[in-house]
Design a protein around this nucleic acid. Sequence first.
DNA 1: GTGAAAGCGCTAACAG
DNA 2: CTGTTAGCGCTTTCAC
Lengths: 336, 336
Amino acid sequence: MAVRLKDVAKWAGVSTKTVSNVLNDYVHVTPEMRARVQAAMDELKYRPNLTARSLRTGLTRNVALAVPRLDEPYFAELAAFVIEAAERHGLTVLVEQTDGLQARERQVLSGMPPQLIDGLILSPLALNFDDLQSAEPDRPLVLLGERVHGGRFSHVAIDNVAAAGRATQHLLEIGRRRIAVIGYQSFASAVASHLRYQGYVEALRAAGLEVDPALVPAVAVFHRPEGAAAMDQLLDLDEPPDGVFCFNDLLALGAIRSLHNHGVRIPSQVAVVGFDDIEEGRYSLPTLTTIAPDKRQIADFAIRSLLSQIKGENPRPEELPVAFSLMVRESTAGVV
Amino acid sequence: MAVRLKDVAKWAGVSTKTVSNVLNDYVHVTPEMRARVQAAMDELKYRPNLTARSLRTGLTRNVALAVPRLDEPYFAELAAFVIEAAERHGLTVLVEQTDGLQARERQVLSGMPPQLIDGLILSPLALNFDDLQSAEPDRPLVLLGERVHGGRFSHVAIDNVAAAGRATQHLLEIGRRRIAVIGYQSFASAVASHLRYQGYVEALRAAGLEVDPALVPAVAVFHRPEGAAAMDQLLDLDEPPDGVFCFNDLLALGAIRSLHNHGVRIPSQVAVVGFDDIEEGRYSLPTLTTIAPDKRQIADFAIRSLLSQIKGENPRPEELPVAFSLMVRESTAGVV
DNA sequence: GTGAAAGCGCTAACAG
DNA sequence: CTGTTAGCGCTTTCAC
């Protein structure tokens, strides 16, 4: 059997309390005592039983990260940073995939056994007001991406409206006037889509331009094929666009694929801007101009907020705005 | 406070054992009893305390998945499948990143608290014979990718030699005779690299061709920039290759980028084959011909093997060969 | 500053 | 088929 704290105590000739004190860095332990206990631990290769500790303390040092799917590059990259940040704080991350399904997001929110995790980082896609209202996530929670009303929970996100505005503005600055947008979704829970659309509209208006509904094809999901299909549609127009702002990089890469298939030159005939700054866009043909949210910061803020909630420091939800930048690459400015 | 098993027992007017029996689907419980207890559970919204159960049983229904990094598409896609498969069996997955560092792989192998997980799925990059020999992973373990000698542990992988042979053969079949390889690594722990190289060499020999060392540039890691650099180097040759087999898709995508930069046409001048079948290769320009390991099967086998080990069914390590196929796309056969 | 002892919530002998 | 009870390994009040 494994060696227990009790064994260490016996070996060192002290009580279990003393060993526990050493283990938990309790201040009032004489140096000699600490050394003696430490020696016993080393000698016996003692490893504390985390389950027993959890049962006693109610804490696990585990946190869950729930994303739509890990095979979407943006979430994979984000998860990598979250795991990294968590590890720096001695936390382990369990990953859940929701497929962007409302039922599964709801289930993650309320259905996870409380003893499994100390907190939850959720990147919702389909959750609506009611879900978040009714959900009683008695555990620390951080929402990723734009908040879904109310502000009952902490959330960390970039300013989607401003970022979308910046992207659109960039297309205007390089002289485009007929700017399409790929990624519009009409359903109510598509918060990110709505905010990015709003940024687009505001930027156009600010430049004295009107929104042409023909330049706003709807998509079901933010994946490559949808981007390609939307672009096909736009190219069929009597007056096709000379610039496209896509609500994420996958849509943009799909659009680029479509443009290539149609023999349209990028960026001379159509300039393309994406959103997310996934690795792929730095190597695509052409490389992709995009909005780059600071993913490391998102991960950092999320873990930090979770930790402070776990420690019971944050009675009220916090809003943590994350930095973003516009990465100008070949798809709007290149030599290709 | 949370409602405990004891509360359910009291409410239902039975003993804790009976409630426990119902909870654990013990066969010898009368239907009425079961119904009564179930009703009490529902009424009180009882959720068993997993930590207490773990302390008692020594099992957690958690497994760890350790990969180099989640932001590498191949591992992200694999992780998605592993999480999916795990969930089907009621397991939760903790994800660890090793960065392909020997020290971290070693640490995952021996340093993880036993109470945290019932088993470990490890995709090693740098682990060597000694590490695996000395490591005493007293817990169920499954290795992903080619085994590192000895067969002390279960592992699931495709036949790398055969797969590499198939890739090389394909280039031969479309008439290429000067075939380079990108991904060779000389250090001892680079098992996958060595096996793929072996498959390449054997396929060449079988076709009566000799290996030209100039066509085997070494790389440090399997990432895009290394693929591009290696391709640059190959194009500088007096007799550049007419086909390239890259040991993973990222290298291939980097190579493609280099070919574009040099104005070399794909596949007419240089045909490119990758390895892994990551999503990106299905949309790249040109789309990428590649070896496609059945990732779903890898995940399935890994979880299944782990579960049978956890149940104590497999005294001896198993070798689980996974299917692969060659996906022919534009980079060797397209219209581009 | 350190020791004795209770108890976290559950499961599984064991008894009936 | 069901009840009683001990104990998994740790933390933590409470004495001393």
